[in-house]
Design a binder for these strands. Structure first.
Lengths: 201, 201
DNA sequence: AAATTATATGAACGATCGTTAATCTAAAAA
DNA sequence: TTTTTAGATTAACGATCGTTCATATAATTT
C-alpha cells in the first residue's frame, strides 16, 4: 500500500510537472489526495520540502548507468547490436510515467532560483553524455569503427536521442514508445553508417 | 522611446520566462516598470492578455525562413559552405536576448493548458525541420551528397543544432555565442563527413 | 481656453495563498 | 487498560493574488 506521505509526493509531482511549483497549491494537492491541507504538514514541513523530496528521489533513481548490465556489455564486440539494444533499453526507461514527469518538471522548473542543489536537465544530459562517451571509447579501442573524437561522437549520438525523448513527452497516445523506437532505429542506422569502419574512406 | 505598454510586455516576458506565468505577479511587473498595478489595466485588460500579446509577437517574428536570404541561397552549390554560413546565421539569431527568452518561456509554459493557440517548442522545431528538409532536398537534387531520406537528414542535422541552442540558454557568460559556433562547427564537420558524396562507399 | 482623452493613483474587493494552532480520533505501545 | 503517538479535522492568521473603481493629473484635441 502507498503511504499518505508517498501519495502527497506523487500528487505533488503530477501537479508541479504540469502547472509548475508556483502554479500548484497545497490545497489542491490535499484535495486530490483526499485530506485537508493542514494534514499535509504532518508529513512535510513546508511546500518546499515536498519538491525537495521529489528531487532527492530522482537523484537516486535517474542515472542511466544502471541500465548498462553485464550481459549487455558482453555484446559490445557487436557494436551495432549493442547500440541498438541499449537504445531500446533507454527508451523503455524513459517511457516510464515517472521519467516523463521528471523531464516535464525539469523543463518547467529549469530557470527558477533554488536554494537546494536541484537536479537540472543538464545533469541528465551530462549523465547520458558520459555513458556514451565511454561506450564509444570502448568501441573505438577495439578498432570497430573509424576514429573520431569520442566527445564529438557522444554528442552527435545523444542529441537526436534526447530529441526523440523530448518529442514523445507530450504525446499521450498509446503508441509513443513504438514510434520512438522506430525513430531511434533511423537515427542509429544513419549514425552507424557514418562511423562503420567497413565503409571505406 | 519605448512606450509604457511595451515596457509592460517586455518586463512581463522577463518574469514569465524565469518564474513562469503563475509565479509572476501583476504587482511585480508594475513595480519593475515603475507604475502602480492598477495602471497596467489601462494597457491590458488582464494578465492573460499580456502573455497572449507576447505569443502573438513571437509568432510574427520567430520564423527562421526569413534568414534564408537570396545571397545565401546562391551559395547552395557549395553545400558545405552554405550549411556552415546558414548555421552561423541561425546561431546569431538565437543568441538574441528575445530569442533566448522565447525558449525559456516555451519550456516553462509548455505543459499548462491554454485557451489560446499558444506557440510551443514543437512549432519552432517543425519550422526548423521544414527549412532543413528543403535545403537537403535541394542539395540532393544537385547530386552533391549521397542519397538519403531528406526527413532523416533534416532530423539528424537539426537535433544537435537545437541541442546546442538549449545548451547555451542558461550560460550568461559573454562567450556563449562563440562556444556555440565552435560546437556547431564540430557538428557540421561530422555530419558533412557522413553525407559527402566525395567520400566513396 | 475649454473639453476631451489617456494614463496615472490610492484604496478596496473577494479569492486564494502557505502556514499554524487547538482539538479530535484511532492505532500502537506500555 | 491506560498512555502515548500518529495523523486527521476545523478554524483562523496574515500575506498576496488579479481586478475594479473613483479620482487625480497630464497630454491632446477642439
Amino acid at each position: 500500500m502507498e503511504s499518505t506521505k508517498e501519495r502527497i509526493k506523487n500528487t505533488a509531482l503530477d501537479l508541479f510537472a504540469k502547472e509548475g511549483y508556483a502554479g500548484s497549491s497545497i490545497r489542491n494537492i490535499a484535495k486530490i489526495v483526499g485530506i485537508r491541507e493542514s494534514a499535509i504538514y504532518n508529513h512535510y514541513g513546508s511546500k518546499e520540502e515536498i519538491i525537495e523530496a521529489i528531487f532527492i528521489d530522482f537523484k537516486k533513481n535517474s542515472e542511466s548507468t544502471g541500465l548498462l548490465t553485464d550481459e549487455l556489455l558482453d555484446e559490445i564486440e557487436n557494436p551495432y547490436k549493442f547500440i541498438s539494444d541499449f537504445c531500446e533499453k533507454l527508451l523503455r526507461f524513459w517511457d516510464t510515467p515517472k521519467q516523463k514527469k521528471l523531464i516535464r518538471l525539469l523543463m518547467v522548473e529549469e530557470f527558477r532560483d533554488y536554494k537546494i542543489d536541484k537536479l537540472s536537465l543538464n545533469d541528465l544530459i551530462e549523465d547520458l553524455r558520459k555513458i556514451w562517451e565511454m561506450i564509444f571509447a570502448e568501441i573505438t579501442k577495439y578498432g570497430l569503427i573509424k576514429s573520431f573524437d569520442t566527445k564529438v561522437l557522444a554528442n552527435e549520438f545523444i542529441a537526436p536521442l534526447f530529441f526523440i525523448r523530448l518529442q514523445f513527452l507530450t504525446d499521450e497516445n498509446r503508441d509513443g514508445l513504438n514510434n520512438a523506437i522506430k525513430e531511434t532505429k533511423k537515427h542509429v542506422n544513419f549514425f552507424w553508417n557514418a562511423i562503420d569502419s567497413d565503409k571505406k574512406l
